[in-house]
């Protein structure tokens, strides 16, 4: 196993993800429409109802639209992570996962490349979303767009790894609706994506604590701070730890000794 071989494998897997994405233009549109509806419809309606005070990383009063932009970036990553999990389950049922896993390459590398490929695709969508938001005059500090990139990569890897781990435990495609209900929605709504945590604490301490423990909250905060050229060490720590934990879970899930690959009886 040479470094060159690992590199060739990575390039091929990422390229395949990209080609696949190009072939599914509807997926791209759907991935953009969802956060845009939130931004342009939901946020506009909520703007009046919700008063936001000045909390870091913000230095002035901000509109609600501006507040939820980082959360919606997180939403794109979250949905994409789950989408790639769905396509992994599909791959497994269709057999192409077998082709991948019988390649003479360490399994952890194959899974990591897969994860990297889907993360890159997600990040492209995040930037497309930020561009449209900018067109609608919801702007961020210029360098923030660049500074957010590492945060988006880490958050994307974390959510992709979660999807990967879930895909190894979901036995059939049909069970996927459960993932929507029990993973995506709670993760999104019990986070700081739509409302600041202090606001949550006003209504319920318990909900606040749940939100504060949710790794998605930290991913969103990491992105939020980075977009405003600020740094949140706590969020970074949490997101990194969660990424490692989900990756470990995914590796365990795909361990050949567990024999889950073709369990069909």
């Amino acid at each position: 196993m040479t470094a060159r071989h690992l590199w060739i494998v990575m390039r091929a897997i990422v390229l395949r993800e990209a080609l696949r994405f190009v072939h599914q233009r509807e997926r791209f549109v759907a991935a953009l429409v969802r956060p845009l509806v939130w931004l342009l419809v939901f946020a506009a309606g909520f703007r009046a109802a919700l008063g936001l005070s000045i909390t870091p990383p913000y230095q002035t009063y901000i509109t609600y639209e501006t507040y939820i932009v980082p959360g919606l970036c997180g939403m794109i990553l979250l949905f994409n992570g789950m989408q790639s999990s769905l396509s992994l389950v599909y791959d497994r049922e269709m057999g192409s996962m077998r082709l991948l896993l019988t390649a003479p390459v360490p399994r952890w590398w194959l899974l990591f490349c897969k994860l990297l490929g889907s993360t890159i695709i997600s990040i492209l969508q995040v930037y497309a979303f930020l561009l449209i938001a900018w067109v609608f005059d919801i702007t961020l500090p210029g360098w923030g767009y660049l500074a957010a990139l590492p945060a988006l990569v880490l958050a994307g890897l974390m959510l992709g790894a979660l999807g990967l781990a879930l895909s190894s435990f979901i036995k059939q495609l049909e069970n996927f609706a459960g993932v929507m209900n029990f993973v995506i929605f709670p993760m999104f709504f019990l986070s700081s994506a739509l409302y600041p945590l202090w606001k949550m604490a006003e209504s319920s301490e318990l909900l606040h604590d749940i939100c504060a423990a949710n790794p998605f909250t930290h991913a969103v905060e990491l992105i939020r701070f980075a977009l405003y050229l600020d740094f949140n060490a706590m969020a970074l720590l949490w997101t990194a730890l969660a990424t490692l934990a989900f990756m470990a879970l995914a590796l365990w899930g795909y361990d050949p000794a567990r024999g889950m690959m073709t369990r069909k009886r």
């Binding site: 071989h5 494998v9 390039r11 091929a12 395949r16 696949r20 192409s96 082709l99 390649a103 003479p104």
Partner: peptide, 19 residues
């Protein structure tokens, strides 16, 4: 096989997996 890719693309992908 990946249905949306060409024969050549499918084979290239596999070749890459083998380095």
């Amino acid at each position: 096989l990946d249905l949306d890719l060409t024969v050549q693309q499918n084979l290239r992908y596999f070749a890459a997996l083998h380095g």
